[in-house]
Nucleic acid binder design. Structure first.
Length: 118
RNA sequence: CGGAGCGGGCGAGGCGGUUGCUCCCGACUCCGAAGGGAGUCGGGGGAGGAAAGUCCGGACUCCGGAGGGCAGGGUGGCCGCUAACGGCGGCCCCGGGCGACCGGGGGAAAGUGCCACAGAAAACACACCGCCCGAGAGGGCAAGGGUGAAAAGGCGAGGUAAGAGCUCACCGCCCCGGUGGCGACAUCGGGGGCACGGCAAACCCCACCCGGAGCAAGGCCAAACGAGCCCCCUAUGGGACGGCCCGUCCCGGGGGCGGGUCGGCCGCUCGACCCCGCGGGCAAUCGCGGGGCCAGACAAAUAACCGCCCCCGCCGCUUUAAGGCGCGCGGGAACAGAAUCCGGCUUAUGUCUCGCUCCGGCCG
RNA sequence: UGGGGUGUCGCCAAGCGGUAAGGCAGCGGGCUUUGGACCCGCCAUUCGGGGGUUCGAAUCCUCCCGCCCCAG
């Protein structure tokens, strides 16, 4: 399985975001909030969001990069394709990597349970 | 050796690997009638000195070409540099510092206004205490006291009833003239006889500059909905036109509500660009020659992890010591992330680094 | 990215060169058996922060900081 994160795996249209926020369910983790909905595109997709509350441009970019890293390293674990939005919190920037990864895996598990099948 | 002033440089130590992102080029495969699109592989480029704050100035685009005046805004010693600037360089004056050096800069004798409290008085001197003349009425005076942020040229001498630029010397101020300098100004000589309190980052005056918006500017394509209602003015009118007037052009135009889209492409990166050399200029900077291509994203790209070497600190072993060794531990940063592009300013940032200079102490 | 607005006590705020109004809340006292209401008193030495102009700055100038809007 490739550990890439290319254009087809991104969510970028405004309408898609609106649908996700309207119909999707969410899970609040320690470092971020995960919004999820079964994907209709046949593959899992992800978008990273970091508002100004997270910090300056440097901190916000870092948060998004870490979210992308989480997704591409662990996307093999998602059996039923999901659309995901990772909404970063301030603590996500400085969190230890292993702790952040555990948090992400727990969130995925919860999402898998609620949508049927991990 | 210690302290201080000024100016410059660099920006995750070097090499390599794995997994990924973005743009460009090439090859191959697939899709399409075609323009083209998708994928795989290979090669190359990929954040900053401030990319920041958005405080100035331009380029560029639209407002019909950006025309004139008023209003409004900005700048403010002089000369220069520049596309332009509120920037930069040199010089002038004033103030501070022993000094290197640093800070400031039009006009208050055109007008208006303000100067609380205190004080007699805060700007036509209208004098509280006071001094002098006088019996008194009244008159002369501004030296001393006191108030205040600021008090009507300063100080000394003469003079006088007491005093006063009333007179004189020195200093200051003002006016006139000479000389030097493009100029700000400097300097010299003569005269006047004191008239001119402070604030223009108060209104203002003078000189110079500025049309308005901003790449979410603006343009093209595609899709979808609607072509309905209300208001204003309709030709001594309305609009282009941003506050007003003039001028020019156009003839139906403008505003609000309601309804739809919220996709793609261009603009989009080669430019007052960067590096080297020579020449002019004290310098800012300019000219010439040679070489180079250095991010172009759009829910928005530079990351994560690992290995070796180097440097620093601690620890251990060893050595008389300087030092050496260690597959021992820790560290190699901070401020901060391009969004149309440049020139500045300002602010943030590292026990980093280089150069010049001043003062003090000691030694020779 | 670009354009604009705002900051005065815990909250709402006036003031725009000379001592920083007022209301709510709070604290203390009075009245009341207690509470409410009412009455009296107290309550901002950095007016978001630094520097400057002025004799004197919340107010004028300048540089920063925070918060809030707007757009295609």
């Amino acid at each position: 399985m490739m550990e890439s994160y290319g254009p087809p795996e991104r969510i970028r249209r405004k309408s898609e975001f609106s649908e996700l926020y309207a119909k999707g369910r969410s899970h609040r983790g320690r470092y971020f909030t995960l919004v999820f909905l079964p994907s209709r595109s046949g593959r899992s997709r992800m978008a990273a969001v970091a508002s100004r509350k997270v910090g300056g441009a440097v901190q916000r970019n870092k948060a998004r990069r870490r979210a992308k890293e989480l997704f591409r390293r662990n996307k093999a674990l998602i059996l039923n394709p999901l659309d995901l939005v990772v909404i970063a919190r301030k603590s996500m920037v400085e969190a230890p990597w292993t702790s952040l990864r555990d948090d992400y895996l727990k969130a995925l598990e919860a999402a898998g349970r609620e949508t049927g099948g991990k």
